Amino acid sequence: MGFKLLSKLLVYLTASIMAIASPLAFSVDSSGEYPTVSEIPVGEVRLYQIADGVWSHIATQSFDGAVYPSNGLIVRDGDELLLIDTAWGAKNTAALLAEIEKQIGLPVTRAVSTHFHDDRVGGVDVLRAAGVATYASPSTRRLAEVEGNEIPTHSLEGLSSSGDAVRFGPVELFYPGAAHSTDNLIVYVPSASVLYGGCAIYELSRTSAGNVADADLAEWPTSIERIQQHYPEAQFVIPGHGLPGGLDLLKHTTNVVKAHTNRSVVE
C-alpha cells in the first residue's frame, strides 16, 4: 500500500471513529477524501466538511520552486461564519470567499490569524475590503508590521502568557507558548472536538522541520505538551499544512522538532 493511500485511509478511519463516538456532533463529509496538494491548482481553494458547521479550507501556493498546501478553518456561528487564517495570499483568499459563498452561503463576518507569517495573514486586506472584521493577538499584529505583512485590524486580548485561553464565538483560542513562531495560536472547536494546530503542528508525513527561522526550538516541545494537557479530548487535529489526523500529530511534531534540534547540535 502506497504512503499517500495509507495517509488518506488514516484520515478516513479517524473521521469514521469520530462519527461513531459522537453521532450528534459529527456529520463528516462523505463526498470524498481530504484534498491534497496535487489536486488543488494554485489560485483555487477546496472546502472539506469535518463536522456539522465545521470545515477546513485548503489552498496551495508556490514557494521556492515548489507547491505547498495550506489549511485553515471555518466555523459556523449562528447565521454567520468565523474564518481562521487566510488562504495564503490575496488571490487565494478572494477564491476562498467565493467558494464559501458557493458552498455554504453564509457571510464571513470575523477572521482570526493564528500567527504573523504570510500563509496566515496574506489576504487580510481582501477580507477587510469584503467587510470582514480581522483579528490577531497584539504580538501577531506587531510582528506582521515588522515583517511588512498585512496586519489584522483588531487585537485579541488575554493571550499574552503561555497557557492563556479565551473564548471567541464558537471557538476557544489558546496560546501554548512559542513553537513554530513566538505568537502562534491554537484554535479548538469544543462542539466538535476539532483542534486546529496551525503551523505549530505537523502532518504525519512530514519528517523535516522546514521553516524554523522564527521558531523557538527549545520551547516548542513544552508548548505541545500544554496543548495535549489542555485538549486531551480532541479527536480531529488539523495541521497548518497537509493531512489531518488525531492527537498523534502532536507527538510526531515533537519528535521531528527534537530530531532537528539534535542534528543542529551535532553539526
Rank of each mutant, 00 (worst) to 15 (best):
Q235A: 06
V112Y: 03
A136F: 03
P107Q: 09
A215D: 05
I224K: 01
Y175H: 05
D79S: 13
D118N: 05
L195W: 00
Y231E: 01
L127E: 01
R167L: 06
A94E: 12
T153P: 09
L10A: 08
V75E: 02
T140E: 03
H115Q: 01
K258T: 11
E225P: 02
L250S: 00
T114F: 00
E233C: 06
A95P: 02
D79C: 08
N262K: 09
L204K: 13
L143D: 03
S56V: 12
K258A: 10
D164V: 08
A95V: 13
T36N: 15
N71D: 02
S223M: 02
L243C: 06
T86S: 14
V37T: 12
D85F: 00
L81K: 00
S70G: 04
G53H: 10
V28I: 12
W88A: 01
R206H: 11
T254F: 14
G158A: 15
F3N: 08
L47V: 10
D216K: 13
D216R: 13
Q49M: 07
S191D: 06
N255P: 03
S161Y: 08
Y231P: 01
P176F: 00
S162K: 07
L217D: 12
V108W: 02
V187K: 00
L127V: 05
D248S: 11
L47P: 04
D77P: 01
F3P: 04
A130Y: 13
I151E: 06
S162H: 07
F26A: 08
D119E: 01
Y175D: 02
G210A: 13
E39I: 08
V37L: 09
S193E: 08
H241P: 01
D79I: 09
Y68R: 04
E101F: 14
P244E: 03
F3I: 10
L9W: 08
V11W: 13
Y34K: 13
I151G: 08
A130M: 15
V189R: 00
S181Y: 03
G89P: 03
G197N: 04
G43E: 10
D183V: 01
V108S: 04
Y135C: 03
V67R: 11
A133S: 09
T36V: 12
G240N: 03
T253L: 00
D248M: 07
S30W: 13
A218W: 10
L47N: 00
G65H: 05
P239D: 00
S161F: 15
S56I: 04
S162I: 11
I227R: 02
D125W: 07
L13V: 10
S16Q: 05
Q49P: 12
T140Y: 04
V28H: 04
L185C: 02
G169K: 03
N211H: 14
Y188M: 08
S208E: 10
K102H: 06
N149W: 10
V189Y: 06
H252G: 04
L13T: 14
L82M: 11
I100T: 08
T253Y: 01
S137F: 07
V28D: 07
A21Y: 13
L13R: 11
M1A: 03
Y175W: 13
I227E: 02
P170R: 12
T134H: 04
H115G: 00
A90G: 13
Y231C: 04
I201G: 01
A209I: 06
T93P: 01
R46A: 13
Q49V: 12
D77N: 05
P138C: 12
Q61A: 12
I40S: 13
V124R: 03
Y231Q: 00
T60F: 06
L217H: 06
A234K: 03
G78I: 06
N184K: 02
D29T: 14
G122V: 08
F236K: 08
D248I: 14
E203R: 01
G53L: 11
D79M: 08
T86Y: 02
V171P: 03
